[in-house]
Design a protein around this nucleic acid. Structure first.
Lengths: 236, 236
DNA sequence: TATAATAGTTAGGTTAGTCTAACAAAATTA
DNA sequence: TAATTTTGTTAGACTAACCTAACTATTATA
């Protein structure tokens, strides 16, 4: 049985290596930063996780999850996202409130609980932030690679998820009038600082590049959760 | 913010002092036994809880909860019992499965979660074991004092709760054909070892005194959760 | 009431997870 | 490629929660 802390390290490792396609390994500093601990602390834990054969790790080398390590991590993410969905759908939490509580709930040990929760929610595919929920077999579909920042002026897209789950960011998203499944039209894009002018439900707003990089989109022709179809795709 | 461990000590203290009316204080060994730790460990923790003004404690003296300590403890029990009810009513857990998982869930910190859960369950008064759920104000009604062992031969009663929440005991209760709200008739009682012969739904079974002491009952004239009315009461 | 039994405490040690400070390796860049 | 910057490791220390062994206080009993 793993401790909460060990679980958090595995989860952070998976999240780092899932962030983008190219990167398949993590570094000590990066890991430490993700967990809000000092690099020295991460080094200690990495040795421990290596002994337990949950990570592949050598001194000064890159860090990757082993197959069992990855399986654990996926399970934690599955639980996290199921709980978020539960809080949102069944208990009326707002999408900026769910993350913090799910951080606690993801560590509850009970296979039956996870299975029943999944069933109660009717086997959801996405959490309130648009992230894919790994299924009971631990299969996790490929995530979206395009962000609002990649969309050219004049083109339209549909928001499907967010990259940043912080309360601050999520509340700002709502303030700008955005939400999952909204259609967004990029009116213009400043060449100097990539400031975007976007239109959502007829309302025009300006958003920074930093903001746009945290909004995941597909082109409006594409299904939520599916890769863009190459022929008609409006993005990139 | 209290640690899981601190919360468990407070909960155990409340449970010990709630067990029966007379006893309003706990001892170190008793507390240690309840938590499956050594008495030395309990002593250490008691000093810490005293510093935090959650318990009244002096070397070699009896242990009681302070008002804030008791408030904390009641809140944990409230959460435990709400989660048990959730698992039972909403997720189809059996009554012997809920305790273990609720032991974990009771430590989740989120006032909103507790409130919403309470609402989802329609503000339940009792958990699946018949125990009273303290309300949002932390009010906890007096528990039942009569057990099946107190009922005389020839008299009838109604089961309202169990004292022992272990899987073993609960599965045995089911095997004997018993459950919350069942009417039980005591056919006979051995004077030598207090072995009881009981009838439930027309089926007769023998149960030991130890067993009977863990079944909480009211007389059949009495409402569940209310004290027996003196005039008609069949018990004692 | 003296003694034995029980209950409770203290001292010193362990492990998990964290830290800081000093150092070493690797990567970048001039 | 040599110097500098970045990244990662080691050593030593701390706290929470636990332990054992030895001791002390309280309670029960002969």
């Amino acid at each position: 049985m793993l401790s909460f802390t060990e679980e958090n390290y595995l989860k952070a490792l998976l999240q780092i290596t899932m962030e983008n396609e190219e990167k398949s390994a993590a570094g000590t500093n990066e890991l430490a930063a993700a967990l809000n601990v000092k690099p020295a602390t991460a080094t200690d834990m990495l040795k421990k996780l290596k002994d337990k054969e949950l990570v592949d790790y050598q001194k000064y080398g890159k860090i990757t999850l082993t197959t069992p390590g990855r399986k654990h991590a996926v399970e934690i993410i599955r639980k996290h996202r199921l709980w978020e969905t539960f809080l949102y759908k069944k208990l009326g939490f707002t999408w900026d409130e769910v993350h913090e509580v799910a951080e606690q709930l993801e560590h509850i040990q009970s296979q039956k609980l996870v299975d029943k929760l999944d069933q109660l929610l009717d086997f959801p595919e996405f959490d309130p932030h648009g992230d894919i929920i790994p299924n009971a077999k631990g299969e996790i579909k490929v995530s979206f690679k395009k962000t609002l920042a990649d969309v050219d002026a004049g083109k339209s897209c549909k928001m499907v998820a967010v990259k940043d789950n912080s309360v601050n960011f999520l509340q700002y998203v709502v303030k700008v009038g955005l939400g999952i499944n909204n259609d967004i039209k990029v009116i213009s894009k400043e060449s100097y600082d990539s400031l975007l002018s976007i239109e959502v439900n007829g309302i025009v707003n300006s958003v920074s590049q930093k903001f746009a990089q945290n909004i995941l989109v597909v082109c409006s022709f594409c299904e939520v959760g599916k890769a863009c179809s190459k022929t008609k795709c409006e993005i990139k």
